[in-house]
Design a binder for these strands. Structure first.
Lengths: 196, 196
DNA sequence: CGAGTGATTGACTTAGATCAATGACCGTGG
DNA sequence: CCACGGTCATTGATCTAAGTCAATCACTCG
């Protein structure tokens, strides 16, 4: 279920592609919304900065993921979008999307399903952040991201980035992973983690 | 913007009302979805229990708030709904809602806006939980819930319940509120908190 | 009146944040 | 080709704030 599945050509043709270098700002908080993005390559993270400069990662959009879906009904963005790696994104401008809403029920439903999925994912993140032990957060992350067949997880990006996503310091993440490997709970091979 | 604003009578007439006593379970995880609720009176919380019995509050629905909106596209509920106080809810059964999706664009749009709002609220909660100091979480909560004109917040329900919502122990909440009052940051009058 | 619950405070423990240092690696420019 | 700056990964030492256990008081409800 990607955003374009139910889009007619009129909307697809109105879309544009952008290339981003790691660290580039795709849009920033309070700037006017231009539309909804889809990640074609790489990773883009949605985050908020608090007044102390501390960053909260709200969401990491990977290949095929939509970005800023909730902004379609807003005048301004509510967070920053930053390329977590070199990335390619496609922008679907707001106006044709909203027009599509009026006369394409299949699209409206598909879009709502995307929003519903985002909501459930974000609630899973709430659940994860509500755990106060680093080990529990990591377990939660691993079990949600394990390929169901093989019990392993491939870490995309750096561990520092993962730490940010888990709401931990990178030191806490390194240490806890090390302890989990010691105790035999996981096995590590580069950026692949196997659950035991 | 409540859920019923764009509903035709056919759907409204299919809805039913339920009375709940504090602590009653409205639905529980993995049970089949029946539809979407609206809270008419009281408070209902969505939560998940982890294997240790620790509860995570995902969302507290208050008067006028929708409940389980994301479940309309799912076969089963993904969390528990428990009455946080005596409460009244209205159930809109799934089937007529989904039918409405097909031929009522205004409804489809309104529903998507509700989902988008829920998503933004939940992201705000992620932001809050990502702060590790109790004081910062409380500040975040207060600033989001202050009546914009007057700088005060009325706490609905007990402080214990608020502590759960903030992902803190009740002791930490009591203490931090006390310290914030000491330092003059807030003033307390029963369940009303004034920001200074 | 007694049981149950919320609000509050104290003492203690602990896990994560913070500060700091080191080694590996990678790309760049002289 | 290699030195150098930058970043990631890792580990150690220390501090602190939140969790945990425990006790008390107030209040309500049957």
């Amino acid at each position: 279920m990607t955003i374009e599945d139910h889009l007619p050509d009129t909307v697809k043709n109105a879309s544009t592609v952008q290339l981003l270098r790691q660290g580039d700002v795709l849009f920033s908080r309070n700037s006017p919304t231009t539309g909804v993005y889809e990640v074609l390559q790489g990773r883009v993270r949605l985050s908020r900065m608090d007044h102390t400069g501390h960053e909260t990662i709200l969401y990491v959009a990977r290949v095929g993921d939509p970005l800023a879906e909730a902004s379609i009904f807003s005048q301004t963005y509510h967070c920053d979008a930053i390329a977590a790696s070199d990335a390619t994104v496609r922008l679907y401008p707001k106006a044709p999307l909203l027009r599509e809403y009026e006369n394409n029920p299949a699209f409206a439903k598909a879009y709502a399903m995307i929003l519903a999925r985002q909501l459930m994912d974000t609630r899973a993140k709430v659940e994860m952040l509500n755990m106060n032990s680093a080990r529990a957060r990591i377990r939660h992350y691993l079990s949600r991201n394990a390929c169901s067949a093989e019990h392993h997880v491939e870490i995309k990006g750096s561990l520092k980035e993962l730490a940010l996503e888990l709401g931990l310091t990178h030191e806490a993440l390194y240490r806890t992973l090390a302890r989990m490997a010691e105790s035999g709970e996981i096995e590590r091979n580069g950026n692949i983690i196997k659950l035991v």
